[in-house]
């Protein structure tokens, strides 16, 4: 994102209410993470201490300071999904994506595969509890997920089974 784009985003948020999170959300949506340079640029433009912005992006889980993979796989860990077996979905995804087991829950932050193809993370609830367990790949929701059905979903995004 260049400086001009950032200026445009800033000018879209003229009302003070909801401004800062709105701007940061826009950056997150476009870049899929919050690059440090942009945060510094924003701090200078809005005359807000960098520490304040850093505090925000580390507090709200919607923001990520690390670049994410090409596809973002988000598993709902809400109550309805938990009751319906979300843990097995997460573990299976970790296995399929060759990530250390349990890493996503433990760190509570997104984990990216070595080839940068996928980022796995957890969410609280998409409000789609009726079709639990639910996962989202990029902007697409999948309901009634089962461990066996996961390879087929991942394949839609270019994943291939590893030959060991």
């Amino acid at each position: 994102m260049d400086e001009k784009t950032l200026d445009d985003i800033i000018s879209q948020y003229d009302a003070p209410s909801g401004r800062l999170l709105g701007i940061l959300g826009e950056i997150q949506n476009r870049e899929r993470y919050i690059p440090r340079e942009l945060l510094e640029m924003l701090s200078a433009k809005l005359k807000i201490p960098l520490s304040h912005l850093y505090s925000l992006v580390t507090f709200y889980s919607f923001f990520s300071l690390q670049p994410v993979g090409d596809h973002r796989v988000t598993v709902c860990m809400g109550t309805a999904c938990h009751v319906k077996g979300a843990a097995a979905i997460l573990t299976t995804l970790e296995q399929l994506l060759c990530l250390p087991e349990g890493v996503t829950e433990e760190t509570r932050s997104p984990v990216t595969t070595e080839d940068n193809a996928f980022t796995l993370e957890i969410a609280r609830c998409f409000g789609a509890c009726s079709i639990a367990p639910v996962l989202r790949v990029d902007n697409h929701l999948y309901g009634y997920a089962t461990p066996d059905g996961l390879p087929a979903i991942l394949e839609e995004y270019g994943w291939r089974k590893h030959e060991d």
């Binding site: 201490p49 960098l50 520490s51 304040h52 850093y54 580390t58």
Partner: peptide, 10 residues
Amino acid sequence: GGGVISFVNR
């Protein structure tokens, strides 16, 4: 008026 440090994470 410094804003040097802040809470980080939650």
